[in-house]
Nucleic acid binder design. Structure first.
Lengths: 252, 252
DNA sequence: CGGGAAGTTGAAGAGCGTCAAAAGTAGTGG
DNA sequence: CCACTACTTTTGACGCTCTTCAACTTCCCG
């Protein structure tokens, strides 16, 4: 709860990504995730206009950002940390539909409400854009809309990959696919690929892969035993023989 | 945000959803699925320009439209019939990531290649747009881009719902959810909701829901036995007590 | 009609879930 | 600094759902 206690390890780029709330010089210029985010398509001048409607949000682990069914008033851009988005069934069964990291956006909804809930895993920093105001900017900057479409299109491809995983892969293939995908996304953010950072707990991994915590744990143990991975302190996982892992992920 | 003022013409003569390829008067004006498709946002004048770059494609059941990994040169719009899109694992396991009907588009890819394969289930008619030419038009008609984003956003929400299904629902819930979703989509296309048309075979349903044909068949039988559905000739399914089915789909 | 694909049904088994308990880890406060 | 608590992770035993393999039936379409 105490904001001075937050864990700096996960705050890649928070310092630089912090936005002022006042009308001072566009904080976006200094944003470390600008090249990853949906604002990447804008020049400095346009970015300034975008920064005028934005406000900063910070969350501590476990904080909800919004819940499924809430009016979708904002679109968000993660600038630091890790989040999960999920859907629930009435009896409590949960499917995590995605993990979000720096550069990812969330809140897209052309229904008037959010289709999923979002919650912080680590300490998180976000840019928040009121949809109504953002829509006006979108009309002015078609480039922004194009970039959004491009990112949505990427997400769609990722969703399809995830459906393949959920529908047709076994536990081992699921876990290995998951680790490889985390590694690849880290690379895209300019981070190291190999000791891959796994900030989420077993339950979250299970709810993402359609497994139980126990099965996730057992599968990790099994992969460890067959020397395909090793678990490092601090939630890091060392991948041995990426090539071999890529085969395992596809059932070869 | 959704500029949805399309002129609704009652053109239920689905026979002539097909377009000639000649430079004659815009065939889009007579298109029966225009209000559903991504071109819904355009006025007659703009539609004319769109129709200039389009060509018609027809497929018979089983015909492939494109395969995963192929260069993504075209974007398609289904004007009639039913298709399936799917991904394969090296050993042949298949996940159908979606069924497409009149009004749906496919081929979105900002990678240079298709992320999935597409194949006709029934006889199918499509509009085909060369991506390069379409991109030029998109710059001209931001409305078109907005509409695409809106549709992609809808697809994203549907994907998340499907992940919930694949990861957390049991066979019975999966089948019932599937039937209800087919019914709802039929309504959106202006068709009857209740005897729902199920044009795909058991294997396809299984590969869509992460089940085997046998389980699909057994579950249909079980639903039939408990009088929740009845199977009509011609691949139609009669839904009894939609409300009750809605509960079953969510595990209540 | 006849042949092949699609659908149904049965029996057996595997993989993953469930329940339970122990061991490890982290944050809190005396 | 250490003990206390709550949570996370791991491991074990068992059971259930869905898969697998196989045979049979039904449905088309030439």
């Amino acid at each position: 709860m105490n904001p001075s206690h937050f864990d700096v390890r996960h705050l890649d780029g928070l310092k630089q990504a912090t936005r002022g709330k006042g009308p001072d010089a566009s904080p976006c210029n200094a944003c470390s995730v600008r090249h990853l985010a949906f604002c990447a398509s804008l020049d400095d001048q346009e970015l300034h206009q975008l920064s005028a409607i934005l406000s900063g949000v910070e969350l501590t682990p476990g904080d909800p950002l919004f819940d499924e069914g809430e009016p979708a008033e904002y679109l968000f851009n993660v600038t630091a940390g890790a989040m999960k988005v999920y859907k629930l069934l009435p009896d409590g069964r949960r499917q995590i539909t995605g993990f979000l990291f720096a550069g990812d956006f969330l809140g897209l909804a052309n229904d008037e409400t959010y289709a999923y809930s979002a919650e912080a895993i680590t300490h998180v920093a976000l840019c928040r854009f009121p949809r109504r105001k953002l829509d006006v900017l979108l009309e002015h900057f078609p480039k922004l809309e194009r970039r959004l479409l491009s990112m949505a299109s990427n997400e769609l491809a990722a969703s399809q990959e995830q459906m393949l995983l959920l529908g047709r892969k076994n536990a081992k293939e699921k876990i290995v696919s998951f680790l490889l995908s985390l590694s690849e996304r880290a690379v895209r953010r300019g981070q190291r690929d190999n000791p891959v950072n796994v900030p989420m707990i077993r339950t979250d991994i299970g709810d993402y892969l359609g497994l139980t915590t126990e099965t996730v744990s057992r599968t990790f143990t099994q992969l460890k035993t067959s020397s395909l991975i090793s678990l490092l302190p601090g939630g890091k996982v060392q991948l041995a023989e990426t090539e071999k892992l890529r085969d395992v992920a596809e059932g070869l």
